[in-house]
Nucleic acid binder design. Structure first.
Length: 569
DNA sequence: GCCGTTTTCGGCCCGACTGTTTTCAGTCG
């Protein structure tokens, strides 16, 4: 799978061209890189089919370069560019406040080629003497280098929730604050967030800025202006705040929620009508006459589009769908009748069957399934054939004590050879069989794909658990050809899991969409190991929504009768 | 280098904040 390599090379080329002040080409290379990054299939397969130029942003020339990388693993053009510049752009580009112009200037005047060189000349106070630089810049860059060394990574969506609530509560407590809304990737429901974007409606922006930068937990003020400020919290998270008037609220929300790509496309739609769109509103290009801006709905409507939910705003076909009135009726949290994939003390969970079921009932759910681990070593305290009988009896007892439906089931290991450690006949006696990869996770793509597809083909599996087996910010996804897995899942009526455990969030939205396009259906789970984890399912709903999923695609929304029929094997 | 609901040529999103200089370039989102 060379997708990531190609993305990296194309982005690096864009950086170099930008440094060389080549016009427009950097944009083209970046656009192509972005398209490839969001592909769900191996780009080599697309190349085999001779369809590289079907990828948005890829034309003849970039197509040829991609082909060269696929064929040889290298790109002569890129090697040539690298020799031309002699600078470690990748590293220097990451320092906040340092862009192509300054990097070039530093190279020309002080022969700065990498981070080390830069740190040296900064400490010798040579940089502050340069034209266009000064003491402040010296300080900013040194600070940037320090920050880069510590590198605060992205944050799990789940961890951002409490920060969002803290900031919201704080700002809402002031009477000069009319509205507080969270925008950015958090509002789009991405599984990790880099920083937070907060939007406030107020007629007294200066006051809002003051209280914002003085919030507790603020360790650094990165910028403070009349309507826009940025701070860093003690945990390293950056929070950007923007204050707007009521009249601009919709336009500002649109702008701040993003994604950037979605906004760029929207602005193009506006331009075609002779209008311009910015964070203050939609106006005519000529004469600057007001068209819309108070609500997001107004703006979309004027542009001839249906309202697009934030989770869909990734420029992945949503504008076209909105124009044609073909947007999906996205599933919502309240459509979820129950959750799958829950663990108890019978394997590595913290609570009993009864405690888990009672909590689910308390949350207003109508059903849940128990899926304790069944497997070999590597899993904590897994179920065995010997213990299975008593485990099922226990669930039976719990069913009589609670007002919700409890399904029996296991989460069983897909072994290295694609077999499962329990016979088909015994698996058929369970309501919900989830099969997952837990061991031997470093197999090559071909073998791993075969392993998973074999399991799906040969056993009565209902749900493929956390298909990528990734851990966010910790462990990469399995090397798996998901297109083949999707095909096998569809063929054998296996639901793909959307796992809402904060570290897993697996499948992510873009892959849910790919699965949906391949004809797959989905089952949403909490992967709860504790009663408190049962509240994770709204996180999985985010992913489903990002994947364009409707109720008809999601097992959790169906009637009991339909669920039972779908689980029959 | 890519792309097309005015276009196969001529565009390519748009504005705030900072630091440095004194009207603006660079960076960022």
């Amino acid at each position: 799978m060379k997708n990531q390599l190609i993305v990296k090379i194309l982005n690096n080329i864009a950086d170099i061209l930008e440094l060389q002040e080549v016009e427009f080409k950097p944009i083209a290379y970046r656009r192509a890189a972005q398209s490839i990054e969001s592909l769900s299939e191996d780009i080599a397969d697309i190349y085999e089919r001779n369809e590289l130029e079907e990828i948005p942003g890829v034309g003849k020339h970039i197509g040829e370069k991609i082909a060269e990388i696929i064929e040889t693993g290298k790109l002569k053009y890129y090697e040539k560019l690298k020799k031309e510049i002699k600078i470690d752009l990748e590293q220097l580009n990451e320092i906040p406040g340092l862009g192509p112009k300054k990097i070039k200037f530093l190279y020309k005047t002080l022969d700065v080629r990498d981070l080390k060189d830069l740190e040296k000349v900064l400490k010798q106070h040579k940089v502050r003497e340069l034209e266009g630089f000064g003491e402040k810049t010296e300080e900013t860059l040194l600070h940037g280098i320090e920050l880069l060394k510590k590198r605060p990574s992205r944050f799990l969506y789940f961890h951002a929730i409490s920060i969002v609530e803290m900031v919201k509560k704080n700002l809402e407590s002031y009477d000069f604050v009319k509205k507080v809304e969270v925008a950015g990737s958090f509002r789009r429901g991405k599984e990790t967030v880099g920083d937070l974007d907060i939007l406030v409606v107020s007629s007294q922006p200066a006051k809002v800025m003051d209280v914002f930068i003085k919030m507790k937990d603020v360790i650094e003020v990165l910028a403070k202006g009349g309507t826009k400020s940025s701070i860093r919290l003690s945990n390293g998270m950056q929070v950007d705040l923007r204050v707007v008037h009521e009249k601009e609220y919709g336009a500002a929300l649109l702008y701040f929620i993003g994604s950037k790509d979605h906004n760029v496309e929207l602005r193009k739609v506006a331009l075609k009508r002779g209008w311009t769109l910015n964070e203050y509103g939609l106006t005519t290009l000529m004469g600057n006459k007001w068209i819309a801006g108070r609500t997001q709905e107004d703006i979309y409507r004027k542009l001839g589009l249906r309202f697009i939910e934030p989770e869909l705003r990734e420029n992945k076909g949503e504008l076209e769908a909105a124009r044609l009135g073909k947007l999906p009726a996205l599933v919502t949290v309240k459509d979820i009748k129950g959750v799958f994939h829950n663990h108890t003390t019978w394997s590595d969970g913290h609570n009993s069957h009864l405690e888990m079921a009672q909590k689910a009932e308390e949350l207003g759910l109508k059903f849940m399934s128990f899926n304790d681990h069944f497997g070999h070593i590597g899993i904590t305290n897994p179920l065995t054939e010997k213990r299975l009988g008593k485990y099922l009896q226990e669930i039976d007892k719990v069913q009589k004590k609670v007002g919700i439906k409890v399904f029996t089931g296991v989460e069983i290991d897909i072994l290295k050879d694609g077999t499962l450690p329990l016979s088909q006949a015994k698996l058929r006696k369970l309501d919900v069989v989830i099969a997952s990869v837990h061991v031997a996770i470093n197999m090559k793509e071909k073998e791993m794909t075969k392993r998973v597809c074999n399991a799906l083909s040969n056993y009565p599996i209902n749900i493929l658990g956390h298909p990528q087996d990734r851990l966010l910010l910790e462990r990469e996804p399995l090397a798996l050809n998901l297109d083949k897995v999707f095909d096998a899942a569809k063929k054998h009526d296996v639901f793909m899991e959307i796992n809402g455990s904060p570290k897993r969030m697996d499948l992510p939205g873009e892959l849910v969409k790919a699965g949906l396009d391949a004809g797959c259906k989905f089952a949403l789970s909490t992967d709860a190991h504790d009663t408190s984890h049962l509240t994770f399912y709204p996180l999985a709903v985010n992913l489903a929504r990002r994947g364009w999923v409707e109720q008809k695609h999601l097992l959790n929304c169906w009637s009991f009768g339909k669920i039972e029929k779908a689980l029959q094997k």
